[in-house]
Design a protein around this nucleic acid. Structure first.
Length: 582
RNA sequence: GCGCCCGUAGCUCAGCAGGAUAGAGCACCAGAUUCCUAAUCUGGGGGCCAUGGGUUCGAAUCCCGUCGGGCGCACCA
């Protein structure tokens, strides 16, 4: 097993910890120095060395000495590590480590041995994380407003799984609110239309053509039965059929992006099962729900506002601005009331919860966090870990002009149109090459025109180049081999050093819940590869295939294969194809 | 009025839970192909990291104020 070494950087962090412990044990340093602030990471400037630690600087004060004196002590310890060639003190007290070339060659062999698992981490310890994302209302096809959260959520879920969690990908189907009644009425119009009536979709209903086939199917199945029937006769039936049709459409749309959820949870079923009542009773028994007067909304003046008594959840106890109603005055559950129970249900089947929401729902974060905290710690203990990750708005532009989207007006840009136009890989990579908590522009004209310049092709091209070279090598009788990795020099090992940061990048990205870091890492790795590759233009001895030197060629092809492996692993994490050729 | 997010090159964005002279792509200028589809590479110009304070050995990064942009502030979903 090589798992103890699977992350070189973590491994050397422990080497530093051991050195500190040795100095404490010998009485050279006072015992009990903190370790948490000690880092071990590659320096920005590679000329400083392979790894750098701030240990001397952050521990000088607690150790009662100065950074450079402490660094000198640590250097003496660190030089005992066989993989360390040199340990030097630099600047205000950095310790820069250089590792032996063999250590890096070993890392290269480790990539080959681990293959698709290189970078996989045990960090998550098998803890179950529920990631809920998309959860778009089932009232129409996916549009570009949903796209970013969908991609980010999916990539995050995969990232967490790769980092050692058990992940549940979940979609919450909001099939219980007023919007699905509107949907049902809209479908009823289409149903009448399918029966030959000339219709005009009234203001307030969904006018989209996508409901036409739903109406036709109902017309075929039920004929004129519900044509002139009162709404009460058909509403539930039509709603059920319409939601099912919308969810089929949404699943199809998501599939074009390579997104597949493990679990679709229905709000209507949740309510019907009595779980919402149970959650209410539970919170009431802990005095976290009471009947009280709802405050008027702040910052707005509503003409028809009247105070009304409703069952309120004490979210102010957990930092919210006001207590929130769980039921409406007509007795129906509010969205929040059902959502509260829904999160309770999720928390019972997972060790941690992550929700991916659009920034337009930011205002409800506090209350739902309050609800989870209340439900999972009402009887003591620590609340279940729960994060809401907000994905900022995507400003859609066409030739620099904002595109306004409205589902009710039927003016929206569908996800499937965009995917059909620029491709899944471009859409995914574009959404993942920026951090989620900043707004972004998505200009169709630019993305479509510039799709050739999209960074995703840059990364894929590196992979394709590697594949073609390996194939060419094979055709000419050269096989990649780890036999003579000693022939790889500084320029080749520089590539290995960069690739070796992949496991560390995976862990950091998982902890920060930032899949975009993988995308940037891949771009850097591809860039280093392309640079190296072009060395061969002027210096034929730097090519992967050096016809007269089969041992060197075998080692170089081995290097190429492993760089390709890391690129493949990274792209797989992002759900982007690693094409063999472009 | 209140809450959350953002402000880094002309443009689009990174900056790894504070670290060593601030990075990439696009655009602009000048160059480079007998392993490989140049979908690539090399070099150049271009920044008071919005702004004012604070914290400390050290701040683009953390804290507070100000300015600017976005989102939200229903028994909606």
């Amino acid at each position: 097993m090589t798992d103890a070494r699977i992350n070189l950087h973590a491994d050397f962090t422990s080497v530093i910890h051991i050195a500190l412990t040795a100095l404490e044990a010998s009485g050279t340093l006072p015992a009990g120095l903190p370790r948490s602030t000690v880092t071990c990471e590659p320096p920005r400037d590679p000329s400083h060395g392979d790894l750098s630690t701030n240990a001397a600087m952050v521990l000088a004060k607690p150790a009662g000495t100065n950074p450079r004196a402490l660094a000198a002590l640590l250097v003496a310890e660190l030089e005992k590590e066989p993989r360390v060639v040199s340990a030097e003190i630099a600047g205000p007290g950095f310790i820069n480590l250089r590792l032996t070339d063999d250590a890096w060659r070993g890392e290269l062999a480790l990539i080959a041995q681990s293959a698709a698992d290189y970078g996989r981490s045990q960090m998550g310890g098998g803890k179950v994380v529920n990631v809920e994302y998309v959860s778009a209302n089932p009232t129409g096809p996916m549009h570009m407003g949903h796209c970013r959260g969908a991609v980010v959520g999916d990539a995050l879920a995969d990232l967490l799984a790769y980092a050692g969690h058990k992940v549940i990908k979940e979609y919450y189907v909001n099939d219980a609110g007023a919007q699905v009644d509107v949907l049902a009425r809209s479908v009823h119009m289409r149903y009448r239309e399918a029966l030959g009536e000339t219709i005009e979709i009234p203001e307030g209903l969904y006018p989209g053509d996508y409901l036409v086939p739903v109406g036709q199917a109902l017309a075929e199945e039920f004929g004129v039965t519900y044509k002139d029937a009162p709404e009460a006769d058909w509403l539930i039936l039509f709603r059920t059929r319409a939601v099912a049709a919308m969810m089929d459409m949404i699943r199809t749309d998501l599939a074009t992006l390579g997104i597949h959820h493990d679990l679709f949870s229905s709000e209507a079923e949740l309510q019907a099962s009595g779980k919402v009542d149970a959650a209410e009773q539970y919170l009431r028994s802990h005095d976290l729900i009471y009947d009280g007067l709802l405050e008027a909304p702040k910052g707005k003046t509503l003409d028809d506002w009247e105070p009304v008594e409703l069952p309120l959840f004490r979210s102010t106890k957990f930092g919210d601005d006001q207590d929130r109603p769980i039921k409406k005055s007509n007795g129906a559950w509010t969205y929040f009331g059902a959502d509260l129970a829904y999160h309770f249900q999720k928390s019972q089947n997972a060790d941690a919860l992550v929700d991916i929401w659009g920034a337009d729902h930011a205002g409800t974060v506090k209350r739902i966090k309050a609800a989870v905290a209340a439900l999972t710690s009402a009887e003591g203990g620590t609340p279940k870990p729960f994060e809401v990750k907000l994905v900022q708005m995507v400003q859609l532009l066409r030739d620099g002009q904002p595109v306004k989207m409205s589902k009710r007006a039927g003016t929206f840009v569908t996800l499937s149109d965009v995917v059909a136009e620029v491709g899944k890989d471009v859409v995914r990579f574009t959404m993942l090459t920026r951090k989620p908590d900043a707004q972004m522009d998505f200009d169709f004209a630019k993305v479509i025109e510039a799709s050739k310049d999209n960074p995703v092709f840059y990364v894929q091209y590196a992979h394709a180049r590697i594949c073609r070279n390996l194939k060419k090598g094979t055709d000419e009788g050269f096989m990649p081999s780890a036999e003579n990795l000693g022939l790889l020099g500084e320029e080749e090992l520089a590539l290995v050093k960069l690739a070796a940061q992949f496991p560390r990048t995976v862990e950091a990205a998982a902890v920060a819940r930032e899949p975009h870091r993988i995308a940037f890492f891949l771009h850097d790795l591809a860039s280093a590869f392309h640079s190296y590759y072009n060395l061969g233009n002027d210096r034929p001895e730097k090519r992967f295939i050096v016809a007269h030197d089969s041992a060197l060629t075998a080692a170089r092809l081995f290097l190429a294969a492993q760089i390709g492996q890391v690129v493949r692993n990274g792209l797989a994490l992002l759900g982007v194809e690693a094409a063999q050729e472009l």
